[in-house]
Write a protein that binds this DNA or RNA. Sequence first.
DNA 1: CATGAATGAGGCTTCATTCAT
DNA 2: GATGAATGAAGCCTCATTCAT
Lengths: 185, 185, 185, 185
Amino acid sequence: MGRAKTIDEVQLFQETEKLILESGYAGFHFKALSERLGVARSTIYNYYSKKEELITAFMVHLLEQVVENMDRASHAGNPVHALIQLWGRYANIHQMMQVMPYIDKEASPKVQKSVEAMFQLLQQMRSKIKDILIEEQQRGSVREDVPLDTLAGFVMSAVQIPFRHESEEAWADEVYKLIRSGLSA
Amino acid sequence: MGRAKTIDEVQLFQETEKLILESGYAGFHFKALSERLGVARSTIYNYYSKKEELITAFMVHLLEQVVENMDRASHAGNPVHALIQLWGRYANIHQMMQVMPYIDKEASPKVQKSVEAMFQLLQQMRSKIKDILIEEQQRGSVREDVPLDTLAGFVMSAVQIPFRHESEEAWADEVYKLIRSGLSA
Amino acid sequence: MGRAKTIDEVQLFQETEKLILESGYAGFHFKALSERLGVARSTIYNYYSKKEELITAFMVHLLEQVVENMDRASHAGNPVHALIQLWGRYANIHQMMQVMPYIDKEASPKVQKSVEAMFQLLQQMRSKIKDILIEEQQRGSVREDVPLDTLAGFVMSAVQIPFRHESEEAWADEVYKLIRSGLSA
Amino acid sequence: MGRAKTIDEVQLFQETEKLILESGYAGFHFKALSERLGVARSTIYNYYSKKEELITAFMVHLLEQVVENMDRASHAGNPVHALIQLWGRYANIHQMMQVMPYIDKEASPKVQKSVEAMFQLLQQMRSKIKDILIEEQQRGSVREDVPLDTLAGFVMSAVQIPFRHESEEAWADEVYKLIRSGLSA
DNA sequence: CATGAATGAGGCTTCATTCAT
DNA sequence: GATGAATGAAGCCTCATTCAT
């Protein structure tokens, strides 16, 4: 009968992330999750009483980490480069965010709260990027002939550039070059 | 002979696309689709006998269009700009492709064939981009200090840059600037 | 567009038999049948407007053949042996009859009629066997210490004895021996 | 822990048997089964996750019983008579086995295992019958002029002889007579 | 007649979720 | 809390059957 196993919330989030990355929203079930955690499916309900609550809670957690790291990035010597590095480290946020549209946002009050929190965090991310870009513009190192939103979108899109490099560092360096000065020779 | 068709495949593909874009793979059911088409659910099975068959057939169709258009783009005066314009027009391929990992590739032989076709088409896309970039390199208008794959990834990633512009044209122009010469002033 | 194909009713019965033998009642669909006949599924409905009608019509046809042949058998020199031979030839009636319980006998008036006809034919079979046995009893060549029904059942059960012989004849001979004088040395 | 079971596997098997005997493979659904058991359809899936798994598991169970009883039969004073009695008791195995060809044997690994087990058990049955017959041949009480396989088939075919007797015992006695000494007076 | 098209009914399965221990 | 059991809703798919040409 064994002692009753307790769920380690850290592990819960880890497996949640893995599972979403591997199988996307459609493939994310409590069934699969419980198997990986080695507990009964119903046990998870003692922690999160809805699928959506778990997913959104996890996403908030993830975004909080990124935002926190962005703060550090903005104080770095070369904030844009630091940003790209950060992207390297959290390459999967983007993929994670992809599942958002499929979440039933009215599933429960808790879900609603989390979703709101997520939007705020995304806002923060975007405005932090903008802040960095504005500062660079003032220093004269970033162009001003393109709307700020587009510039920010451009920086964020780099998350998508595939990862065929020996190291995260090498990837960040190459990508930084491109972001900085584009394709031209 | 037989009665006149009430669905044509064009309409079928159109609604398929809309549905996937709105609700993603998880939200794509024959039920939802049939409601939009105003036919019985089972009717769709007369056209595609499996969810996956329809989706993959549609994707192949979409990619074929893109590849065809890329051919034209590569003969344009400014091929890279033409490419970015193309991205503007097919902004959703990327989102569509996102659902690929969740498809059960062994669902049926037809699905397998379509999946293979998709991979080939993606290969073609990638190599067409590379061809364009190589030519530009030879003309001296594209840098050579970054691996070709990364350059290609960079161009493709532009598909992600969000679309807050009055027109597709305006978007393409801005994005082209960035791709060409980067963030720097 | 090809000339419209007509269904050959002989072929229809042949394929019906094959299909039932291969797949049983559950596996017998108009879909499969139409494919084998190379016609559209709906075409079969011009001949038999219900699955059950076709099946029962076929069975009646089959039983009629057997009964007819039994008449001949009963006039043979050794009627019991002739019977066993007949079993060899129509080894599958038994299997065919197995599907009867699963037929919805009230599916249509035609079905009802066929089902009645089948029962009558089965009755005839049984009574022909009994007649043969009675005659043999009168000649002193069949035991009288076992009820006639059981004797008849015994003869009919021989249909089940598996068929691992070079020829139908060889099978019939061996089986006849057993039916005649049993296991004893 | 957890709540008390409402179905036990014995009951599950009983109803499975009844249902198959009444309606055959085609008429065997989890829906019908669940109605008889008074539970939700999906509940059965907690026990057997596929129709085929349940059916084959049940058949294995049934055959195991028969084989076990055959062991006892072979030690009886008159093993052939004991066998016939056994047939009387398990008259429906034969009908059950009839559904075998329609089972999708690749439905799941569990199904495959069960199917293999079934074949082995059938093998065992056949060879136990042969063993009994060989022993009787050595004692001189069974003929040797007919191949063993045919003899075994003959004994097994008796399962089919219909059951119009006051008791199982009476049936077995009559049938034994026939098997032993055939039709002849 | 033959046919292709449409459809509804019915069976299969999987999950999220609830409940009793 | 943890768990095993039960369940309903929802999606998948197949086929008999009907209909219009």
